[in-house]
């Protein structure tokens, strides 16, 4: 893999226009002492533009733009090492998830691919109650509108099919199994 270029650290200074969702996140990591244990524990730090420690600093500084243009929380694979080891006992992994939620709601371009992935996954669950692997991969590839992405997965898909583990599934419409549950969750989520 190519060496990742680390951008310049952000300008110091406290932003006065921090929107509410980010303020809630700031409160969660307010006690961060910038010790770097999270960075040292993170299996994905090598691929991140900002290390976890530096990203928490961006959060505290209210550097919204830089934060949502960075790939750091997108690359969190929820291994829970930082949560386990943070000397301040901060809920770091969960807060990474919350950043993903904000990015999904606000349609930040850097996160488009993962957001589409998750969205199509949940669409399959919403329709059938359980995820149909092939259906949702088909939906995902269609939504990416990139004819080359599926090729990356073709050899594996064929091997899995050969084993009878997955079958071709045409995306199906019709009655949606968990529609009511999803709607209610979305409704309450909006009120939060």
């Amino acid at each position: 893999m190519d060496q990742i270029q680390h951008p310049e650290p952000p300008e110091k200074g406290v932003s006065t226009t921090v929107p509410a969702p980010l303020r809630a996140i700031q409160e969660r990591v307010y006690a961060c002492i910038q010790c770097g244990t999270c960075t040292g524990s993170c299996p994905n730090a090598f691929a991140m533009d900002y290390t976890p420690r530096a990203m928490w600093r961006l959060v505290l500084m209210g550097e919204k733009e830089t934060l949502f243009n960075s790939r750091t929380f997108l690359l969190c694979s929820a291994c829970y090492y930082c949560t386990l080891r943070c000397p301040r006992g901060l809920p770091l992994t969960e807060t990474m998830e919350e950043l993903k939620q904000i990015a999904a709601r606000e349609n930040h371009p850097v996160h488009k691919k993962s957001v589409l992935f998750y969205r199509n996954f949940l669409e399959s669950v919403r329709r059938h109650g359980r995820v149909r692997e092939m259906e949702f991969m088909t939906l995902y590839f269609l939504s990416l509108k990139n004819p080359f992405t599926p090729l990356q997965f073709t050899p594996l898909g064929l091997r899995l099919m050969g084993k009878g583990k997955v079958g071709i599934q045409v995306p199906s419409k019709g009655q949606r199994r968990l529609e009511a549950l999803f709607r209610k969750a979305e409704e309450l989520e909006e009120q939060e």
């Binding site: 929820a78 998830e97 919350e98 993903k100 939620q101 999904a104 993962s114 992935f117 998750y118 969205r119 996954f121 949940l122 669950v125 109650g129 359980r130 995820v131 199994r177 968990l178 549950l181 999803f182 209610k184 969750a185 979305e186 309450l188 989520e189 939060e192």
Partner: peptide
């Protein structure tokens, strides 16, 4: 009987309540 998806890593990245409601079911 009639179990459904737990939301995997997709629901936690989408919404807090959904990510708990799916497994809670």
């Amino acid at each position: 009987e009639d179990w459904t998806c737990c939301g995997a890593s997709a629901a936690p990245a989408t919404g807090n309540l959904l990510s708990l409601a799916l497994p809670a079911r």
